[in-house]
Computed example of a mutant assay.
Amino acid sequence: MKALTWQANKRVDVVDVPDPRIEQPTDVVIRITSTAICGSDLHLYDVLGPFLSKGDVLGHEPMGIVEEVGPAVRSLSVGDRVVIPFVIACGDCYMCRLGLTTQCETTQNREHGTGASLYGYTELYGSVPGGQAERLRVPMADFNALRVGSELPDDRYLFLSDILPTAWQGVQYANVPEGGTLGVIGLGPVGQFASRIGTHLGYQVVAVDPVPERRAMAERHGIDTFDLSDDAAAWLREATDGRGPDAVVDAVGMEAHGNTVAGVAQSAVGLLPDPVAKKLLTTVGVDRLSAMMLAFDAVRRGGTVSLSGVYAGVADPVPFMNLFDKQIAIRMGQCNVHAWRDDILPLVEDPADPLGTEDLVTHRVGLEEAPRMYDLFRDKEDGCIKVVLTP
């Protein structure tokens, strides 16, 4: 089959790889009908290459049709249409029963001290072949494949794989008081959905992003937006009676605009020999923190900052004096997709499409064009906000 594979730092290619097969009785194999490029895939492209091997299949936002079913699978049949969460979890362990599927004790990567296995996301998370491919093996499929209807287009369901639950969790973690104000830093795909979810839940939403096309998309959904500038924190406070938002979602993460020194360091580490780069990334690695710092600066005293963007630095400087003084609560973590699906599915299937799932994709191309789209998405060119690949 054809699959998008990591080849080297800043280089991915579509090549032929072996077809997936049933390996455990609880597996299914799906034919992928839609699969998206995620902002966190760009971390693999630019920063986390030392934890990848040449030929690793990338991607963790797929959906498709079940083609093969293992003998122990009970809830799925050939021909079912399914969405696959990016997290691989058992559903039965202590952590899964708590709803913390990203900490699943069955698929946890103890060798690296990391959480549950993820599709297409480095040796740190299991080196599991990803979903930017024509087919995908789904382990423990009764828990990890969500069967959906056949009437609505893929875009209504596809984002249940990652970015829609990630945005939902980010807003839930933000703990906005009823009728309160939610700030959103970054209007990429997660920020777009976080903003819309906030509006749907009755909050005033104010958002910051440097890209005009992203601000325009958010404004279509009733979001007040502001360009990223030195005045962004002041604008967020002015929009909220001088106090700042009750809560702020950082939907950007480790590769924010700003902090050129950290950006150069990230790129340089990615070019070092893998053993050296791994050691540096796991001992003195730093992130570009401008989005997080803006969130800390802008949120009101006693408010909450919810980190939905991925961070990977282990030596990041954090202003604890200011956080302590302002009495800021912080929530963060990979999204526990399975815990939120039942809450979101009715909104996805609502004929009114209240979260605007059909107003997010800006580029839809064949799988063979994926390498070009990685560059386009990274560089925010041609109004690119969300890319969907159709194998």
Score class of each variant (00 low, 15 high):
107 T>P: 10
104 C>P: 13
135 R>A: 13
124 L>W: 02
122 T>C: 04
140 M>Q: 04
110 R>S: 14
128 V>L: 12
107 T>K: 10
107 T>I: 09
113 G>T: 06
107 T>F: 07
109 N>M: 14
129 P>I: 00
120 G>D: 07
142 D>W: 13
130 G>S: 09
125 Y>I: 06
129 P>V: 00
133 A>I: 00
130 G>C: 12
110 R>F: 08
106 T>G: 13
106 T>H: 13
106 T>E: 12
131 G>D: 07
127 S>I: 08
131 G>K: 04
127 S>Y: 11
139 P>M: 05
122 T>D: 06
117 S>A: 14
122 T>E: 07
116 A>R: 02
120 G>K: 03
111 E>V: 06
131 G>R: 05
138 V>C: 03
113 G>Y: 08
126 G>P: 02
136 L>E: 07
123 E>S: 12
124 L>Q: 01
137 R>L: 09
134 E>S: 02
136 L>F: 09
141 A>E: 02
103 Q>I: 08
127 S>E: 14
110 R>V: 14
133 A>F: 00
135 R>L: 13
140 M>F: 06
139 P>I: 02
141 A>Y: 02
108 Q>N: 12
116 A>H: 01
107 T>Y: 04
142 D>G: 14
138 V>A: 02
137 R>K: 12
142 D>M: 10
117 S>F: 10
118 L>H: 08
137 R>V: 03
107 T>A: 09
142 D>S: 11
120 G>T: 06
131 G>L: 06
133 A>P: 00
133 A>Q: 02
135 R>F: 13
108 Q>C: 13
108 Q>K: 14
141 A>L: 06
139 P>R: 00
132 Q>W: 08
137 R>P: 00
104 C>V: 11
105 E>D: 15
107 T>H: 05
133 A>T: 00
109 N>P: 05
120 G>S: 09
106 T>M: 11
131 G>S: 08
102 T>P: 00
142 D>L: 11
105 E>R: 11
110 R>I: 14
114 T>Y: 09
118 L>N: 06
124 L>M: 12
110 R>K: 15
123 E>M: 06
140 M>D: 00
104 C>S: 12
137 R>M: 10
129 P>D: 01
126 G>E: 07
119 Y>D: 07
111 E>F: 10
113 G>L: 07
107 T>R: 05
140 M>W: 05
136 L>Y: 09
121 Y>T: 01
125 Y>V: 05
106 T>V: 15
132 Q>N: 15
121 Y>F: 14
138 V>W: 02
124 L>D: 00
119 Y>H: 13
135 R>H: 14
127 S>Q: 14
130 G>I: 08
129 P>M: 01
122 T>F: 07
134 E>W: 03
102 T>V: 09
138 V>L: 03
103 Q>W: 11
116 A>N: 03
134 E>N: 03
106 T>A: 15
141 A>F: 01
124 L>E: 00
113 G>K: 06
135 R>D: 05
125 Y>C: 08
141 A>D: 07
138 V>T: 04
107 T>V: 13
106 T>N: 12
109 N>L: 07
107 T>E: 03
117 S>H: 14
103 Q>Y: 13
122 T>N: 08
107 T>Q: 12
127 S>F: 11
118 L>W: 03
121 Y>H: 10
140 M>T: 04
115 G>V: 03
103 Q>H: 12
121 Y>D: 03
130 G>W: 05
124 L>S: 00
115 G>M: 04
116 A>Q: 05
